[in-house]
Simulated assay, not measured.
Amino acid sequence: MADALGKVPDAEVDPEGTFKYILVRIKVKDGTDYKDIVRGTKSAGQYHNHIFEKVTPPITALGLECNCLGGGKIEHNSKDKKLHVFGESTGYGKADHSVSVEKLKSVFKDYEITWSDDKE
């Protein structure tokens, strides 16, 4: 079942713009293996839980459990190859942006990726 964790990408975010994101811990049911993933999209509208509701079904279909660790916003500038992580979720609290940045770095290898505790 741990191989199911490997099937889930570390980070998936919209290709451009400023949008909400969440940091999610996925783990093997009845096991200790887990990994954290980042998901962000403009389609979430005003609420971070809309991202979680979209992320959960395909992950649970793999036999994994999901737990949202917090949220924030990502500013993605694909032209300049820059990502900036900031802010917090009203419903889930602030994600550990340093963890989120490490996940983003594993996918966006040639990007400059920064974070701050600024709310806006």
Results as ranks from 00 to 15, higher is better:
residue 3 D to K: 13
residue 3 D to M: 13
residue 7 K to R: 14
residue 8 V to S: 12
residue 13 V to Q: 05
residue 14 D to H: 10
residue 14 D to G: 15
residue 15 P to R: 05
residue 15 P to G: 07
residue 15 P to H: 02
residue 17 G to K: 00
residue 17 G to F: 00
residue 19 F to K: 00
residue 20 K to I: 07
residue 21 Y to D: 01
residue 21 Y to G: 02
residue 22 I to Q: 06
residue 23 L to C: 08
residue 23 L to E: 04
residue 24 V to S: 11
residue 25 R to G: 10
residue 25 R to W: 00
residue 26 I to W: 09
residue 27 K to D: 07
residue 29 K to I: 05
residue 32 T to S: 14
residue 33 D to M: 13
residue 36 D to Q: 13
residue 36 D to N: 15
residue 36 D to A: 13
residue 37 I to K: 08
residue 37 I to E: 05
residue 38 V to Q: 01
residue 39 R to M: 11
residue 41 T to D: 14
residue 41 T to G: 15
residue 42 K to F: 11
residue 42 K to P: 15
residue 44 A to Q: 02
residue 45 G to P: 07
residue 47 Y to A: 14
residue 50 H to I: 04
residue 51 I to W: 00
residue 58 P to Q: 06
residue 59 I to K: 03
residue 59 I to Q: 04
residue 62 L to K: 08
residue 63 G to M: 08
residue 66 C to W: 00
residue 67 N to R: 01
residue 67 N to P: 01
residue 70 G to D: 10
residue 71 G to I: 05
residue 71 G to D: 08
residue 73 K to P: 04
residue 73 K to M: 09
residue 75 E to N: 11
residue 75 E to I: 00
residue 75 E to M: 12
residue 78 S to A: 13
residue 80 D to H: 10
residue 82 K to L: 04
residue 84 H to R: 01
residue 87 G to N: 03
residue 87 G to V: 00
residue 91 G to Q: 07
residue 91 G to F: 10
residue 92 Y to G: 08
residue 93 G to T: 09
residue 96 D to Y: 09
residue 98 S to I: 02
residue 98 S to M: 09
residue 99 V to D: 14
residue 100 S to A: 15
residue 101 V to D: 04
residue 104 L to T: 03
residue 105 K to N: 09
residue 106 S to D: 03
residue 107 V to K: 11
residue 109 K to D: 13
residue 110 D to V: 11
residue 110 D to N: 14
residue 111 Y to E: 06
residue 114 T to I: 04
residue 116 S to R: 01
residue 116 S to C: 12
residue 116 S to V: 10
residue 116 S to K: 00
residue 118 D to P: 09
residue 118 D to N: 10
residue 119 K to I: 11
